[in-house]
Design a protein around this nucleic acid. Structure first.
Length: 902
RNA sequence: GGACAUUUAGCUCAGUUGGUUAGAGCGUUCGAUUCACAUUCGAAAGGUCGCAGGUUCGAAUCCUGCAAUGUCCACCA
């Protein structure tokens, strides 16, 4: 470490003595001009994996002593292959893990996959139907169908794992988990048992969402809605019934048991409390007239036909009024027998038309209008979802229960709370931070409107419900059943097992496994798509606070969705899907990763195009060539210069210190895109285009070049692990970059860095003037400048590289600019050259006049602001100072231009 | 209907507690090319920061209203 100057204190860097240890100068010169990612990535990944560093137990001492840091990988569904969204998540999580690992934390990233229950079985059933099966469940039976599903899921697993490796994910494969393996099954059964004992899990006959195609219940979140045009009919049940009602689902009216009106509605006061027995389309109904504030008196006739069996809202009304429930639609979405022979067996759509025809015939139809309506459809499969009553298992979110342990620092063991209260407190207290913050509101809104969670599914692929029945199904046991007990055939909603992921994947409830991992929980960050906030995040909070009394994670980073370049969702039917596995061989993993991290904001959908990936491939190559150049410089002894640092050295090292500090703080606060962009600007603009160009003239300062190479490899590693590790090895650096320390610098060269900035402006000014005046870029010409003494000295000290970067033969100090020269101002200096031919003096004058006009109004505005008493009183000093500096500069410019014009 | 977000250069987007002539990348135009990189380098053009008010010495930034677009939630039976 001591080989560096005192000024830039490189507290963490070591290993320079072996730089270049591996390659000779001729080897270096033979390195390919273009970085070929595909020829090195697999081997690098294999090295990392075999070295064991993905496993925190095998990390170096400093990590072992470090703070535990843990990310649980959101387990991808075993339903096929990974897409760009997965690739983005892997990139961000790997970025965080590598960053924290380098900073010395005991970093654990647990990979895994999700059996995804319904989604996987649906997928396989769809494949089977394409193969010619009409009803795979009936034709194959439980065992054979499950066999096919398991085969499919296993193949899918292998694909996913391979893709995850390709992305460079540094996750601990020795701890890979599956939501459907034996340990996770134990966790699920244990939690089920606890909740059952506490009365939060209950079996009940309630209205549920029913998917008639796949013959299963769905949770509210698995139901989407589709806008359709429907016919809103207004009619009476029969001629004698006193009130007309409206409905878009008249076929459900066979199941009506009440008509509800608003309690204050003057039209119906005399009817409230009465019961009628109208004949509706041939079926005798028993209708009570009830008063309920849920009814909007302004809608339709102000009277609502209540169908408790086929509407969750009506079911709630029915509960308040203790109304009977009559089911009229069966699980095949067909009308049931007691609707009469004319209707029984019809589909709901057929029955709807027939009811309308019947009402019209009998003169009961008052009006029919077309309205927009949201039709509930199944997220998987897309068929219309029916609401109907069924005996199912529910998690009761509003039910009070006694806590099994102290919880969230707010409640003591034995206190009574509801699951909803736990879910709200976890975020309200700040124990969990959502990034971006605005998702708090969405989360709270969802929780506040949450209904009981139906967790039983009638599919076969999933954790079977750990309940056994005996005889008349009134007795339950969650323990081992006796011989005459029959197990519930249903399985659990896949999210029930996913919800326990943070702790079940760490071994809970197995004592030994859990103890070994206890330090990692609560996990540090959960990174996932913003579409999973309800499905998964909220349910993880529910389950973890309930089971452990603590939060599952401290932060949630919600990434947006990856869209195509026109902002559309990527989908096979549109044909705009970018496949990570096709892009990686073409552009390299590092380029794909960068394109998914830079230019993407949390919670905001981002656009991705192949062109964007290509531009990051170019950057990867730039980094490769920067490294190659530095290594060649270091290998060429003639080029090496020792001795005190030049101004350029101090400037670039000062920039490095600032940039690395800023990048660190941005990574800490999840600003990955901004961190990467800042680093890219530093690497490409400051380092490559300025410092290295200057080094070609001044000769490379060995220490500075080493520091720079070392720093950019480390700083870029979490973003682009492959190319950085590859260069690290070529440079002969010790060990693997993956466990190198994250760099920190102290900047104590700010003063000289500021002087360098003046020279940068000076160079840019000359370049601009040359280009504007159309000077042949290859022609070396002589420039002159007028400036104060300090600037004269500064230019003199750095003359050689300035000449090179401006392609000038000489730069001379002048007292004044000759009248026939072309001039421009740059900072506080005036620069110019003798251009004898081709100067359009008229055009020059016009240009100068325009500039002078702008300057004059700027000067005027600034002066008046500066002389404003309110301003100087209230504005902070640095603002005032920078304004007066700029004013001086503008005045100087104006003076020069005025002189030229006269 | 409710909530949230977005609206800045031709395109994609930065702009972190309000601080002063609004930034980048891509694209465009002009120019360079043995000397790390054409997967490159230099330079330029291009914006009344969606609209209208307000607060302030000072507004792209804060407040109010409006408009357009998008997402989520709830769906009026």
């Amino acid at each position: 470490m001591s080989m560096f100057s005192d000024k830039i204190h490189l507290s963490t860097i070591h290993g320079f003595s072996v730089i270049l240890g591996a390659l000779s100068m001729s080897d270096l010169l033979e390195l390919p001009k273009a970085y070929d990612a595909s020829s090195v990535e697999d081997a690098i990944y294999a090295d990392w994996e075999s070295s064991g560093v993905f496993n925190p137990d095998h990390l170096p001492d400093r990590n072992q002593k470090g703070e535990p840091y843990c990310i649980m990988m959101p387990p991808p569904n075993r339903t096929g292959t990974l897409h760009m969204g997965h690739a983005q998540r892997m990139s961000i999580q790997d970025l965080m893990i590598r960053f924290e690992r380098m900073r010395g934390k005991k970093a654990l990233w647990v990979p895994g996959t999700d059996h995804a229950g319904l989604a996987t079985q649906v997928k396989v059933e769809q494949i089977l139907m394409k193969e010619g099966y009409k009803d795979p469940r009936k034709e194959l039976g439980r065992e054979k169908l499950l066999g096919r599903v398991v085969d499919f899921a296993d193949k899918s697993h292998d694909t996913i794992v391979n893709q995850t490796r390709k992305m460079g994910s540094s996750c601990d494969w020795s701890r890979e988990r599956y939501t459907f393996d034996a340990e996770r099954n134990l966790a699920v059964n244990t939690i089920f048992g606890m909740m059952f004992e506490d009365g939060i899990i209950e079996r009940g006959f309630r209205v549920v969402n029913w998917d008639p195609q796949f013959q299963t219940t769905l949770s509210d979140d698995e139901v989407d809605s589709k806008d359709v045009t429907a016919r809103l009919l207004t009619f009476k049940y029969d001629k004698v019934f006193p009130v007309a009602i409206s409905s878009t689902r008249p076929e459900t009216k066979f199941g009506d048991t009440a008509v509800a009106v608003h309690p204050d509605d003057v039209r119906y006061q005399n009817l409230i409390g009465k019961t009628f027995e109208p004949i509706f389309c041939g079926k005798k109904l028993s209708i009570q007239i009830i008063a309920d504030t849920a009814v909007d008196p302004a809608f339709g006739t102000g009277a609502l036909g209540v169908t408790p069996a086929h509407s969750m809202i009506d079911a709630e009304i029915a509960e308040r009024h203790d109304l009977p429930s009559v089911q009229v639609i069966d699980q095949q979405a067909r009308m049931m027998a007691d609707c009469g022979p004319e209707f029984a067996g019809l589909t709901t759509v057929e029955a709807r038309a027939k009811v309308e025809a019947t009402l019209t015939e009998s003169g009961l139809l008052i009006s029919a209008e077309e309205v927009q309506q949201a039709l509930p459809i199944a997220q998987r499969g897309g068929t219309t979802v029916e609401q109907l009553p069924s005996k199912q298992w529910f998690v009761r979110v509003n039910r009070k229960f006694k806590l099994r342990q102290d919880t969230l620092g707010k409640w003591k063991k034995g206190e009574e709370v509801t699951l909803k209260e736990l879910m709200l407190e976890a975020v309200q207290s700040g124990d969990i931070k959502l990034v971006p913050e605005r998702f708090d509101k969405i989360y709270f809104h969802w929780i506040n409107n949450l209904r009981d969670w139906c967790i039983s599914r009638q599919i076969w692929f999933g954790h079977q419900i750990p309940v056994w029945y005996k005889g008349d199904e009134t007795q339950f046991s969650i323990e081992s059943p006796g011989t005459d007990w029959v197990r519930d055939a249903d399985t659990l909603d896949t999210w029930f097992s996913s919800a326990a992921w943070t702790f079940s994947a760490l071994g809970w409830p197995d004592k030994k496994a859990w103890e070994a991992h206890r330090e990692y929980h609560p996990t540090s960050v959960l990174e996932t798509g913003r579409d999973l906030i309800f499905f998964w995040i909220a349910r993880m909070v529910l389950m973890t606070t309930y089971t452990l009394g603590e939060v599952p994670f401290k932060s949630v980073y919600l990434s947006g969705l990856v869209m195509d370049e026109q902002g559309r969702k990527m989908s096979k039917s549109v044909g705009n899907v970018l496949d990570p596995l096709e892009l990686i061989p073409k552009y390299g993993t590092d380029a794909v990763r960068l394109s998914l991290v830079l230019g993407m904001t949390p919670g905001q959908d981002g656009k991705l195009s192949e062109q964007k990936i290509e531009s990051f491939r170019n950057f990867t190559n730039k980094l490769w060539n920067i490294s190659r150049f530095i290594l060649i410089q270091l290998g060429d002894e003639k080029q090496n210069v020792s001795g005190s640092k030049t101004m350029a050295d101090e400037w670039i090292l000062s920039r490095l210190a600032d940039v690395s500090a800023s990048v660190t703080s941005k990574l800490e606060s999840f600003q990955f895109s901004s961190a990467g962009e800042e680093l890219r600007d530093f690497t490409w603009n400051d380092l490559a285009d300025w410092y290295l160009e200057i080094a070609k003239v001044e000769g490379g300062k060995v220490e500075t070049l080493k520091t720079l190479l070392n720093a950019i490899l480390r700083l870029w590693h979490p973003f682009m692990p492959f190319v950085t590790e590859h260069v690290w090895k070529i440079a002969g650096m010790k060990g693997s970059l993956i466990v190198a320390e994250w760099p920190e610098y102290i900047n104590d060269s700010m003063g000289r860095a500021a002087e360098f900035e003046k020279l940068r402006l000076f160079v840019t000014g000359i370049r601009r003037l040359r280009a504007e005046q159309g000077v042949d870029a290859t022609k070396k010409i002589t420039f002159g400048f007028v400036a104060d003494e300090a600037m004269e000295e500064l230019v003199g000290d750095n003359l050689e590289w300035i000449k090179r970067l401006t392609n000038t033969s000489a730069i001379e100090v002048m007292n004044a600019m000759p009248d026939n020269w072309v001039v421009a101002t740059s900072g506080m200096s005036t620069i110019g050259f003798d251009k004898t031919e081709g100067v359009d003096m008229v055009a020059e004058r016009v240009k100068m006049e325009k500039e002078l006009g702008q300057l004059t109004s700027y000067i005027k505005a600034t002066e008046s602001k500066l002389s404003d008493a309110e301003f100087s009183k209230k504005a902070p000093e640095h603002v005032v100072r920078s304004m007066s500096d700029k004013l001086e500069e503008a005045k100087e410019k104006a003076k020069v231009i005025t002189a030229r014009l006269s």
